[in-house]
């Protein structure tokens, strides 16, 4: 792979990750338990779609074949999508969404704090904006972790089940393959392995406040970097891409 191809692939991974999570958060619209939360979740969706656009536009530039953010977002199948598995998990109940987002938000804040030092100016710029947003997202999700974990018996149970379910998808966020290693070595990308301890301490502290426990099962699922996903992603893309694909010549 050329340096250009490596960077392109890296942009797709992060662009897809935020696009897919934005889509999930968009699905909450009109489904929140209270109007304020509908607004908060749409806000988060908007942040993620903004970040995704930045990555995909840059990816298209790097690739140099004239593909736009929309070509990349709407005209690739699930086997060519490289989002982190955790982001495609269906919303489930509110606890499931909060558990998923919390695990990712804690990662994202650490990740972007590192990426802000990237020698690639565009990536550093994306990171600086994303840090602010990730801080807010993490605040939102960790506050809910604690409220639900230490709320009622029912919410405690739901929150614990949600954490147990999402846990096996967290390892995927820290995986490093040759592409990641290459960019980390070049000072462009982030060495995610190195984020794991700090991430774990965020998780441990918040779960403690939330009176919740860390799951014992440590088997971690993988696949996203090769375009292997849960079945949920195909359904999401079928819906997301339906209109754009039905009228490929149309401009909206």
């Amino acid at each position: 792979m050329t340096a250009q191809e490596i960077l392109f692939q890296y942009c797709l991974r992060m662009g897809d990750t935020h696009n897919v999570l934005a889509h999930r958060m968009g699905e909450w619209c009109t489904n929140g338990h209270i109007l304020e939360e509908d607004i908060a979740m749409t806000n988060i969706a908007l942040d993620h779609i903004g970040t995704s656009r930045a990555w995909l536009i840059y990816g298209g530039d790097v690739e140099g074949k004239g593909r736009t953010e929309d070509d990349l977002a709407f005209h690739r199948d699930e086997r060519s999508y490289f989002n982190m598995l955790i982001t495609e998990l269906p919303n489930g109940n509110f606890a499931d969404t909060i558990a998923r987002n919390f695990m990712f938000d804690a990662f994202a804040l650490l990740y972007y704090s590192e990426l802000a030092n990237s020698s690639d100016e565009t990536l550093a710029g994306i990171a600086q904006k994303a840090i602010k947003e990730a801080k807010y997202h993490l605040k939102h999700s960790s506050n809910w972790m604690v409220r639900l974990g230490d709320g009622t018996e029912e919410s405690h149970q739901k929150m614990q089940i949600a954490i147990n379910e999402v846990w096996r998808f967290t390892g995927n966020m820290f995986e490093m393959d040759d592409i990641d290693q290459n960019l980390a070595d070049a000072g462009i990308g982030v060495d995610c392995e190195k984020l794991k301890d700090a991430w774990m301490s965020t998780i441990v502290n918040t779960l403690k406040d939330a009176t919740l426990t860390i799951p014992e099962n440590n088997y971690m699922l993988t696949g996203s970097k090769k375009g292997v996903h849960t079945e949920a992603l195909g359904h999401m893309l079928a819906e997301m891409q339906s209109l754009a694909r039905a009228y490929p010549d149309a401009k909206w």
């Binding site: 696009n19 968009g26 619209c29 969706a45 908007l46």
Partner: peptide, 24 residues
């Protein structure tokens, strides 16, 4: 909200979500 998950472009999706959020 019925069309958020099917918006045909990234920009269109963002504008629509921002709009629905304003309504809220």
């Amino acid at each position: 909200g019925n069309w958020i998950t099917r918006a045909p472009s990234m920009r269109a999706k963002m504008v629509l979500m921002a709009k629905v959020q304003d309504e809220a």
